[in-house]
Structures are given as C-alpha cells and as structure tokens.
Design a protein around this nucleic acid. Structure first.
Length: 571
RNA sequence: CGGGGUGUAGCGCAGCCUGGUAGCGCAACUGCUUUGGGAGCAGUAGGUCGCAGGUUCGAAUCCUGCCACCCCGACCA
C-alpha cells in the first residue's frame, strides 16, 4: 500500500478525552473514530489489525473442529423470555420495538439463539459433540463505557457454543477449548494468564478467564508465582490456616463517642486492626425470615460482593442496607454495629471465626464491646468465605502466598451444563432412544478488545510497537526526499513492487514530506520493520534497516529484498 | 444510576468573571524556498460559540431548562 492511495490520518496531539495509552494511540494513529459514547468506527488502518486478530481466532477455532456460522444481532423478545433473561439480564440488554410494537433485543450474547438453532437442528447423539462459533458485533448497553474500544457498548466478539451428550464429554471439550485459547493468545504474541473465574450472569459452573497482563487492566488477578494457581480476585477463595486463640481479655463494654469508623477506633483505643471487625448490613434473599442480614469481616478486610451474593441467605444482586433501614432493624447507626446482641441474622467470614479478644460495635450508638470471644461470650454465627483475598494470603490450593496483578479480560470460557437446553427444551436422543438435554459450553473472545489490550502491552513513548502477527503493515519503506532524488524513488519503487508481489503487507511512504515526519509516523504506527532509502545510503550502496523498538543496521541494496522477505518469513 | 467536570474551527485550547458579534497553536489549501528526526516565509479557507428559551439596544459571555461527552463508583469480552 502506498500512503498516497491510503487513508492515513495520524495526529500529533493527544486527544483530551483519552485516558489510557491504547485509547490515545488508537486515536492518534487513526485506527478508530468515535461516533458516540462507546460506539466506534474502525478506519481502514484499524480494520487491518482487527482482521488479523479475527483471522488467528478463526484459524484456531477451525483447527479445534468448530464450525463458523453467523447468527442475527436482532433477536425477538420471546426467545429471551423463555430463559427468563429478558428481565434478568438487566439494563445491559438493549431493547427495541419494531413498527408493529413487537419487542426485540440487540444481541449482547447468543445462548438463546444458538439453543433455538440447536433444538431445530440437533436430533441425535450421533451429531454430538458439535461446536458452532461466530465472529460478530455485540451490543451491551454498558453503564459506563470507557477507554475507547476497551470497554465499548458495541464491540466485536467471537462467541462459540458446544453441545455434548453428557457432562464428561463437555469437560473433555472444555479442555480442548482451554488449549485452543492458550494457542490463540500465544499466536497473538501477548503476555496472558488463564485464571479461575466467576461465571457472572451467563451462568454455569466451571469457568476460566484469559487475561492480558497490563497495569491499566480493570480486573485483579491473584496468582502464585511459579505455580499453576491463578484466579480472579472476585473468585479467589480465602482460606484460613490458623486456629482460634484462647480468650485472654475480659469481655467489656466501652464508651466510644468519637469512633465512627474502624480507623478511628484503632487509633483512639490503640487496637490492632486485626482484632476489630466490620459488620455490614445487606438485604436478605426473598423468603428469609428477616429482610436484612449482617455480613461480618475483619476490620482490615474487604467484603467480596460476588461471594456474598452467591449465598442463599443474601439477595442477589447485593444491596447494601441504607442507614434508615439499619436503624429501624437494629437501633444503631452503621458505625456502631456488631454481633453481640444483634437482632438480625449474621454470617461471619472464615477469618472472623478464628479471631479472639476482638472489638466490635455494641449495636448502640457510641458504644463498643472489647475482648469479645466466640463461644465464651456469644455463639459463633454461620461461617462463609466472604472477603476479598489480599496479597500474601495463602492460595486455596496450598501452593503458596498469593500475589496480585492486573489484567484485561480478553477471553472467557464456561461450562454451562444444561441450563439453556433445559429452559429452552432442546433435546437429542441418546443411544437408548431417550431424550436428553445436551450439556453446553460457551466460549467468548473480545476480538476488538484484544486490539486495545495488545497496544496496552506493546508501546513506547513514540507509539505502538506491534507484534508482527497483529501489525497492520509488517514493513514500511521510507524513501527520503524521493520527489527530488530519482535514484531513491527508483530503488524504493523496485523494492516496493517485489515485496508487494511476494505478498508482504508493505507500506510505502510516498508522501512529499520531510524525513522527520516519515520516521515519526512509522514509529507511531508501530510498523515492526522499516527500510529507509536515502541518497546518503545509496552512495554506499546501502539501505538502512530499523527494527521498531530495536536495533538498526545497513543492508546492501542488492540484498535488501531477500533480507526483507526473510524478516517476515516469506522465504 | 449516584457524585464531579466539560461543551468555542478537524484536533488541543484562550476568550466568559467585568455583555459590544470570536482568537491562538497544530492540521488543511496555494506559491516559493527547504529536505536523514515532526521546516521557513507569504497568502487562503474553515465557526448555527452543544440546543431551546429568557434578560438586554446588544449575549460565546448573564439567567432558566434540556442534551451530549468525559472522569470516580457497582457490571463484562
């Protein structure tokens, strides 16, 4: 491609509303343009990268035996009502009506449509296992879109769905998808980690996320260095190793007029924060005896809402009680709550169950109990894993202390089981002639998000540094002062023609611009290999090669074509 | 949805407080010079000042309402 024939629209200035590097660089290189919040056009440049990601994903899915299809984006409400998700999916689901007033959704994911497809197409266990996938535009009406295409409302996703005669076969195929995903992210030349995950509102049990590692990532991952253990912190189990200490202090009530928070309490009474507890009041699940329930974690710990709302006793989604509700039920404000004489049910975190001689609110304003001990002073309430893990916690599998890092979720695989096949009554005949609900798996990759994630991981102060597998162009030719220097133009044209013929994605900067502009744009665009042709070099019979973000060397003019072909593996 | 902020040329911004009909840098266009790290000179073009209403002889500027976008929190590929 010659730039004069292309639409290149690089900008020097950093857009004001782009917060993270990938978003800034995608705007500055001109890969994307915003139409409105969370909705972007991909320019010819950006689309070249997007297509490269897509193609790697497609090749590996095909290699795993999956079959590509294409399902509709616009889906009738009835389908979503069958699974209950018309109401349960929440405000992310974009709903609309046609001129006759029929309700539709713009697909945020396609379990319903694929299950409808499967119940029409699949009749026999002999057709199983089978996996369909598509690469298609999704729409989720995100509460807060941000970071360009990283968290967009409209985005490109690969979604795959598999069908199995039983859970064992699903599990075996899940392992195949796990290694397929591993291969995809390796081919994309990204640093990534597969982690145990929560399955969110897609449903199902076993689930793994694939994260591209980046400090700007919105997710936190807990892992153990050198072990296989890794989990999203919202999922990571907090285990305890110690045992409860013996009571040594007196159980006593203390006036604490100025201690509204844990920090104040610790400071004013010189307490160890690990001997304090926080009592959080949330809405109980429907059908519980009382409308509120207390969740108790250690003073220095944080409640993990994902774990909490999974408990049968707790309303899902999690709703914190407001001060008025708390006062009505308990008679004290949020700063003065505790398990002693608590009139509502409570669940304590595992680490709280191990505490002795600890302090807590007295359920009366300006009073706390100190020296509390379970069993001696009050009965231990039910115990559950309620908190977020912190750096240094022991891993759930005993492999060592946890370290935390940040990641960008680019893939997620789930074992759905028969959730959808049952609710939508998709059945196949098994070998005994009995109707069975097939077990399903579901496998997503955020194709457009990968482009941003790759930039997040591969850039410097000059611009993007594309991995070769993703680069929009793999080689750039910069003919310096070509409009005056005939020799330069001829050498560049010849090289361009031969690389073009060999099928290389080559970009020739044939703009009549000063060298500095050409260098700056080639670096901004992140083209992995740059060949600089100038009169100075030609005088020595040389062309200069620069590797983006790396070394440079002079190549004899008559060897440069072979050199270039070797660089991009076209020999 | 709650909290905060911003809307002025393609991009980045000033002007607003103290009303007098819009300016700077980059980008764009023309010409000449320049050409191994984002050139110089001369010239040109481009704006319903987010929208609607109000106050005023006069509104980018003051008032009211609305809209959009961005940031911080709960969701997800």
């Amino acid at each position: 491609m010659k730039i004069s024939q292309f639409h290149l629209a690089t900008q020097r200035e950093v857009p004001a509303d782009a917060e993270i590097v990938s978003h800034q660089l995608m705007i500055r290189t001109g890969m994307i343009r915003k139409l409105t919040s969370g909705i972007y056009s991909w320019t010819p440049l950006g689309l070249k990268v997007l297509r490269k990601v897509e193609q790697i994903v497609r090749e590996e899915m095909d290699a795993a035996g999956c079959l590509e299809l294409l399902m509709p984006s616009v889906q009738p409400a009835e389908l979503w009502q069958e699974t209950g998700r018309w109401d349960n999916f929440g405000p992310l689901l974009l709903k609309m009506t046609d001129r006759a007033g029929r309700a539709f959704a713009f697909g945020p994911t396609h379990e319903e449509v694929i299950t409808e497809f499967a119940r029409a197409e699949l009749r026999s266990y002999k057709q199983l296992p089978i996996c369909f996938y598509q690469i298609q535009t999704k729409f989720r009406d995100e509460i807060r879109p941000r970071f360009g295409v990283m968290r967009a409302r409209e985005f490109l996703m690969k979604d795959g769905y598999s069908f199995h005669i039983d859970e064992a076969d699903l599990d075996a195929f899940y392992q195949v998808m796990y290694s397929t995903y591993t291969r995809i992210f390796e081919r994309l030349q990204l640093q990534f980690k597969a982690v145990e995950a929560d399955s969110g509102n897609i449903g199902g049990a076993t689930s793994h996320e694939f994260h591209v590692l980046a400090d700007s990532g919105e997710d936190q991952i807990a892992h153990v260095e050198g072990s296989g253990y890794a989990a999203n912190v919202e999922r990571a189990e907090a285990v305890t190793v110690g045992q409860r200490g013996e009571p040594s202090e007196d159980f006593r009530e203390v006036d604490t007029p100025d201690a509204k928070t844990i920090d104040q309490l610790v400071e004013q009474f010189d307490l160890n924060i690990e001997r304090t507890i926080k009592t959080l009041v949330v809405h109980a699940a429907d059908g519980q005896k009382q409308p509120l329930i207390a969740l108790i974690v250690r003073g220095d710990h944080e409640l993990n809402p994902v774990k909490a709302e999974k408990l049968d006793e707790v309303a899902s989604p999690l709703v914190m009680a407001d001060e008025a509700e708390i006062r009505a039920a308990i008679g004290a404000g949020p700063g003065s709550l505790g398990p002693v004489n608590l009139p509502i049910p409570a669940i304590v975190d595992r680490s709280v169950a191990e505490m002795n001689d600890f302090a807590a609110g007295a359920n009366a304003d300006h009073k706390h109990w100190f020296g509390i001990n379970w069993e001696r002073d009050l009965a231990l309430p039910p115990v559950a894993d309620l908190r977020k893990v912190v750096e240094g916690d022991p891993a759930a599998d005993g492999s060592g202390p946890l370290a935390l890092m940040r990641g960008i979720e680019v893939g997620h695989i789930f074992q759905l089981g028969s959730k959808y096949s049952e609710s939508m009554n998709a059945v196949v005949m098994d070998e005994n002639g009995r109707a069975q609900h097939p077990a399903m798996g579901c496998y997503g990759i955020g194709v457009s998000r990968i482009v941003a994630a790759a930039i997040e991981q591969n850039h410097d102060e000059h611009g993007i540094i594309w991995p070769q597998a993703l680069a929009p162009f793999t080689i750039a030719i910069l003919p310096l002062n070509h409009q005056k220097a005939h020799r330069v133009r001829e050498a560049a044209d010849k090289l361009y023609q031969s690389l073009q013929t060999a099928g290389v994605d080559v970009l020739m900067d044939d703009r009549p611009l000063r060298p500095g502009v050409m260098f700056a744009d080639a670096e901004l665009l992140g083209i992995p290999h740059v060949l600089v042709i100038g009169e100075r070099g030609l005088d020595q019979g040389m062309v200069e090669y620069r590797k983006r973000g790396g070394e440079q060397q002079d190549i004899p003019l008559d060897e440069v074509e072979a050199f270039a072909l070797e660089l991009v593996g076209k020999v």
